[in-house]
Design a protein around this nucleic acid. Structure first.
Length: 569
RNA sequence: UGGGGCGUCGUCUAAUGGCAGGACACAGGAUUUUGGAUCCUGACGCGGAGGUUCGACUCCUCCCGCCCCAGCCA
């Protein structure tokens, strides 16, 4: 792509990239990477990074590597590698054969460490972890140099080699860069490059007993892969001078690191630590519980890759800390699903309706539009009979103001069927409504009245004898507060803001018969209710649907206002 | 308070010395066989104070506020 037919830079990173393209800094090359640590599942925050990393490479005709930053064997597992690969592919990105691992570079990293020792720029330190911390100083005061800082090159070389050979116990020695214990930037106060750790690595097994730290491995890994632009989040801004120092001392290819603000979402936690806690303490059913912000969970919930990508494009890229309103995410799923999800009728909380003047035993097949947003999607037949179910919430014995739906004496339309009028209510001994008696107008077949009379509401319905039953899981936001970390009481944390009603399981929902063929992962709009996704466990005869997101609901808003008003009055 | 960053509608995000624009959210209306979708309309913002300039969100100075860093985590 030439600069003339390219869209304007979308953000400050693209401006920098284009500046480099103009000046020829990297020979016109753009090569990025997405560098996850395989110690957890990818979440919506990673999706932002993935869209930036892969998106910028694609926009400028370059490519993006997938590199697993696997420098800590005690936390990393193959399971996570598999899930990360799956999630990135699902999101819609490809890395070809460019799948790398920091552990691929252990030998090179070791050689480079030896090089720094030879240059007098690294040394073996015998201080304990605690002593190192004490020597590091504080934010305001400079650190103290380790008594081992000025060992000879020969001694350092010997010691470092013996560290690798396994002659010393775990934690007894480290290799440190010799930079500046008085630096204002604490990352420059002789950072640790290697620690002794006898742990089996998921890829290198027991080949090593010393492991490079992230700080020592990351920049060089980018360099080895000839990355041009190392995009990462803000907290690594402080580390850039350190990476620059390493790369300059080594005299190797030097990528440009650019930092951007990570994603925060209202009503959501995104820290790995907190998500892990939710899983381990069983507040949710697992990493793919549809209330989780992980990509695996969102997929199960019914989010589409397109919706997530559109969301990521829509939120922009900048350096200011920010919290995106989760409503924006919900907007993008609705927007995408509105276009593609077939409409279907399902009654979540069934209320029986008998059409008194409809012949017993008669069944009609009525035409229903599959998706009004997609004319090509055609129509289907839906059975109608004398006994139906409508939504409990679509009838009120005493309708409040602005309530348009069914009530005694009131006429409404049954979608694609007939106008019906409520002429009676049957109750049980406890006074609960068990059944509605209605009449229908045969002249309104299909839903239009030849005499031009209008109704204010159209209800969804299913024919009782033809309906298939289903379990439906109604998911809502996991937390009650926009900022889950906001707690009143000292000693409480985000768990105190978990919403006990974030999941409601409905059984005995009644669906139009066609839904019996729903395949796991299939998306539907249940008319007037929301978007639903057939769960992985969904089978014919044992239907299970997850609510992805409700439809925008003007009535619910009005009703909420009434309640607030009444409460305030 | 050492070092590094960041402050534009309620929430995100544009503007690169020349009319503060867009999205989401919110409010109202049109339309509608989904109280959906669509369309229209509206209200709301440059952290503060000085300075430079014909003209400042933009440049300068000072102030205020917020975030990150003291793992042998990443």
């Amino acid at each position: 792509m030439t600069s003339s037919d390219r869209p304007k830079p979308a953000n400050f990173i693209e401006e920098i990239v284009e500046e480099h393209l103009r000046t020829g800094k990297y020979g016109g090359r753009v090569h990025t990477r997405f560098p996850p640590e395989p110690n957890g599942y990818l979440h919506i925050g990673h999706a932002k990074a993935i869209c930036i990393d892969f998106g910028i490479a694609a926009k400028y005709g370059g490519c993006c590597n997938l590199r697993f930053d696997d420098t800590n064997p005690v936390r990393e597992e193959q399971e996570y590698i598999d899930s990360i690969r799956e999630d990135i592919r699902w999101l819609g990105f490809e890395w070809g054969d460019r799948e790398y691992y920091a552990s691929d570079y252990y030998e090179q990293l070791y050689d480079w460490a030896v090089m720094l020792i030879r240059k007098g720029k690294a040394y073996v330190d015998d201080l304990s972890a605690e002593q190192i911390r004490e020597h590091r100083g504080t934010l305001r005061s400079p650190g103290k140099e380790s008594p081992y800082r000025n060992r000879s090159v020969e001694e350092n070389l010997d010691l470092f080699e013996r560290m690798r050979r396994g002659e010393f116990p775990d934690g007894s020695k480290v290799l440190r860069a010799k930079i500046d214990m008085a630096a204002g930037n604490i990352n420059l106060r002789d950072p640790v490059m290697y620690r002794i750790l006898r742990a089996t690595h998921h890829r290198t097994g027991d080949a090593w007993c010393i492991y490079p730290t992230y700080d020592w491995a990351h920049g060089q890994s980018d360099s080895i892969e000839t990355i041009t632009h190392s995009l990462c989040s803000l907290e690594f801004e402080d580390h850039r001078p350190l990476y620059d120092w390493f790369l300059n001392e080594l005299g190797v290819h030097h990528p440009q690191q650019i930092e951007f603000a990570r994603l925060n979402l209202s009503y959501t936690v995104l820290s790995k630590r907190k998500l892990l806690k939710l899983v381990e303490e069983g507040h949710i059913s697992g990493w793919d519980d549809p209330r989780m912000p992980t990509l695996a969970a969102m997929r199960r919930r019914g989010y589409t890759p397109e919706a997530i990508r559109n969301f990521c494009d829509g939120i922009g890229v900048a350096k200011a800390d920010s919290v995106i309103d989760v409503a924006k995410l919900e907007h993008h799923v609705r927007e995408d699903l509105n276009r593609r999800a077939p409409r279907v009728m399902a009654v979540l909380r069934p209320l029986k309706v008998v059409i008194d003047n409809y012949p017993e035993g008669k069944t009609e097949e009525l035409d229903a539009v599959n998706n009004p947003e997609d004319p090509g999607s055609g129509t289907r037949k839906v059975p109608f009979s004398r006994v139906l179910y409508i939504e409990e919430d679509d009838f009120r014995e005493e309708p409040p103001i602005k309530y348009f739906r069914l009530a005694p004496g009131r006429e409404v339309r049954l979608r694609y069927a007939y106008f019906v009028k409520c002429i009676g209510v049957t109750k049980d001994d406890a006074g609960r409504i068990t059944e509605l008696r209605c009449t229908y107008d045969p002249a309104t077949r299909g839903g239009d009245a030849p005499d031009g009379r209008r109704v204010k509401a159209t209800l969804h319905w299913v024919s009782a004898p033809h309906a298939v039953s289903a379990a439906v899981r109604l998911y809502d936001r996991l937390f009650t507060k926009p900022d889950p970390d906001e707690v009143e009481d000292e000693g409480k944390d985000f768990r105190a803001n978990l919403d006990p009603h974030s999941l409601e399981v409905l059984t005995g929902c009644r669906c139009e018969p066609g839904l019996n063929g729903a395949q796991p992962g299939g998306h539907y709009q249940f008319e007037r209710l929301g978007y639903f996704c057939a769960d992985v466990d969904c089978r014919p005869g044992k239907l299970v649907f997850n609510r992805t997101v409700s439809l925008r609901d003007t009535w619910a808003k009005i009703e909420r206002r009434h309640v607030q008003h009444d409460a305030g009055a």
